[in-house]
Amino acid sequence: MFELLRDPLLRFLRVPPSPDPPAGSADSTQVFRAARNFYIWSVIIWLVAQTGIALGVSALIVPAAIGLSRNTRMPDLARFAIMAAGIVIVSIYLLQLLVTFFALRLGYEMRWYIVTDRSLRIRAGVWSVEELTMTFANIQQITVKQGPLQRVLGIADVKVVSAGGAGGGGGHGKHGPGHNDGHAGNFEGVDNANIIRDLILDRLRRYKDSGLGDPDHHDDTPPSLSAAQEVLQETRLLRAATSRS
C-alpha cells in the first residue's frame, strides 16, 4: 500500500526531489543514505511512543465505557454524546497512527547526506524540509554518537559542528525529521559512521586554518612542503613504533 501512495503523497507534500550536490569537483561527490536499520530503529521508537498514546486513550475510553454499561438510567442523548465522543477519539487515534507511520517511512527515505571535497549538504524532512550546507573550512569538530539500541542495530549518528552556540540543541526533537539544529549537521542513522568520520577528517586535514578567521588568508607554505612535513612526521611516528615493538 505504501508503494502505491508514495508518489501522490510526495507530490501533495511538495517534497523536492533529491538535492543537488554542493559545488565541488564532480568526482569527489559521495552520497550517503540512512541505513535500513535506521528505519527499524525509528519504527521501534514510534511503537514505544504509540503504546504510550494507546494507554492514554484507553485510560479515557475504558472507564467511560464501563460507566456507560453500568448506568442504565442515563438519558439517551447523554449516552449518545458519550459514545460519539469515544468514536471520534478512537478514529483520530487511528488516523494519526496511519499519518505518523507514513511520515516516518517517508522521513526515512527522504534523507540525503552528501559530501564533496569542499563541503557537505544534508537534506531531511517531509513536513518540514530542511537542508543544510556547510563548508569543511568552517567545521570545528565531529562527534559520533551511538545509543544501546543503535549499537544492537549497528547504526550511529555522526554530528558535524561548526562554530557558534548550539543552545541546548542536542536533546530536543531527537526523533523529529531532520533535526539539524543551528550550528550542526547530523548524519542520522548511518551504518558506516567510521567511514564518514574518516572521510570528513581527511577533508578537514587540508584546511590548516580550519575554524574561525579571516576569509581565505594565504598560507605561504607551499603545499609540497607541508606534505613533506607530514611525511617527516609520519616517519618519526614509524620509528617510534619500531623502537617500541
Binding site: S128, E130, E131, L132, T133, M134, N138, G185, P215
Partner: peptide
C-alpha cells in the same frame, strides 16, 4: 563570515 546555510520550508511555504 557565514558558517552554514540552511534551507527550511514547511508545507504551506512549499
Amino acid at each position: 563570515r557565514i558558517q552554514d546555510v540552511h534551507l527550511r520550508s514547511n508545507l504551506i511555504e512549499r
